[in-house]
Amino acid sequence: MDTQQILINLAAILAGAAPLIFATMGETITERSGVVNLSLDGKMLLAAMTGFAVGVHTQNVLLGFVAAAGVGMLVALVLCFVSLGLRLSQTAVGFVLALLCTDLSSFLGNPYVRIPGVAVPAQPIPVLQDLPILGQVLFQHNLLIYASFLLVPLVWWFLFRTRAGLTLRALGERPTTAYARGVPVLPLQLLYVLLGGALVGIAGAAYTLDLKQGWSYRHIAGTGWIALAIVIFGGWNPWRVAFGCYLFGALQLFATRSQSLIPNVPTQIFQVAPFALMILILVLVNAGSNPTLQRWIEQLPAPLSQPVQHVLARLNTAAPAALGQPFRRP
């Protein structure tokens, strides 16, 4: 593979991971505030369909994204009402919403299957696009992709360098303490779940209006679950989550490319590989916290057990302490 090919691949990875960046950043914000939004998969599909449909009718890409963000927020609002307002299991409500939104997208999206729509126009950045190497990799995309580049540092800065971000994290770690300090826990959680929902909605439309243009039945089914797993892999840290997205994008690209390089391996292996990898990564990320497994590793021969323990400890991530638990006023 020559340099030119490598640069093309790198640019493709960055672009291909953009929707995942939007979705995972949205979910990172949501989960950092202590709420699990398991409805991601269906919500992305519904937002993707809505964004595409609005784009078709208005011939306006921006309106498509606005509508998709609106749908994401609407679904998030339902989740908040049932799980924060009525204090029911977030897992149950999220799962039901995921299925419901998937079927809604199939039903309402029926007239839009395989028809031409609008797309985000390419917008190379003047001057910067002519930079050697960097120009081709970073600056010959469209506004959506640039936004995904900016989103990661922005979310990190907000979470870890601002007062509001500190409060947000307190919601997910010690909501009662935050409440005692005068933080309006539920309204803020509502706000951040809605914000996360809007980002997830944009992620859905990013597929139908840019990366996998057009709409078909269950267009991007499965992506939402991958996004949820990447958030866990990334330990709710924007940088590491973004790394997970790009790693996943790279592996996917590698899979599609090797399909033509190694034709005697059945294609299904490549289609399934991301999900097998998802399980493997979750196992690695969680293994460090299991006492039984720890005991096993300690019994390994010394030159092996030390590095294994080290790697597992590095990979181990801890969820926000109050994640998934409905807040009750003390």
Partner: peptide
């Protein structure tokens, strides 16, 4: 996996769903 590595059964289960369908497709087309 749930017992020995604390991985949520939700994600393992979902991942295994896709793998099971992959196996079926492989058999049907192979």
């Amino acid at each position: 996996l749930r017992l020995y590595t604390n991985v949520s059964e939700i994600f393992v289960g979902l991942g295994l769903n896709f793998i099971a369908i992959g196996i079926t497709l492989y058999l049907v087309f192979g």
